[in-house]
Design a protein around this nucleic acid. Structure first.
Lengths: 103, 103
DNA sequence: TGAAATACCTCATATCACGATGTATATCGT
DNA sequence: ACGATATACATCGTGATATGAGGTATTTCA
């Protein structure tokens, strides 16, 4: 898939993957990968960005001797998902413009 | 609309706007604007990029004393539109992932 | 024992949208 | 006659960002 097309989708994908249940980096990749390719470096960049924007909160939990950082969605994160749903309508109208045959 | 979401959509929009009839910068903006906001600086950047990628060809035509650059879509440009249609299915599946309620 | 999986992180690079800015002519209202 | 607006092109610098390459450390399993 085109790199540029993924932009804007990725942030919301990550938010969606923690929406119903807190999750951590490694698991998020597993969950999202079937839908969008997502490398580790990209994910951690996104997680940091979303944290800076207060769209998620973090808490470290020890698990099997290793540290895990669990990410929890905030109300701002939920709002981001909602505004994406609005933007989706615009995207669909753009899609129709692109695929329109006679113009 | 989110800046990032536009990426990847813009190039294809421009290609779609010249698909059925050759067009020029100023007209392309008028045609595309109702669907996506598009500034002049952005458009000319895109046109140059698409030309470099051989997705369109250019020819200058004198019109009312002023120069107009008409853009014509190439077979590579048409291919780009077709591959977008394939990518669209992926985008829809991502949308479903994002809006899925129980996970 | 050693490879693969789990789990985190950083840095440099390339791509790109866009505001600001600039040039020049035509048209239209007053 | 004149100034504003529309038409039509172009460039540059900035900020945002996806990703490959690299790094650390533990656990699991063949």
């Amino acid at each position: 898939m085109d790199i540029q097309l993924k932009r804007g989708l990725l942030d919301v994908c990550v938010l969606a993957s923690i929406k119903n249940e807190d999750s951590y980096g490694y698991k998020i990749i597993k969950d999202v990968s079937p839908y969008v390719e997502l490398s580790e470096s990209t994910l951690y960049t996104i997680l940091k960005r979303l944290e800076t924007k207060n769209m998620l909160s973090v808490r470290s939990i020890e698990h099997a001797g290793r540290l895990r950082k669990y990410y929890h969605i905030t109300s701002l994160g939920l709002q981001r998902i909602e505004s994406f749903k609005v933007e989706w309508k615009e995207i669909v109208s753009i899609y129709k413009f692109i695929t329109k045959e006679d113009r």
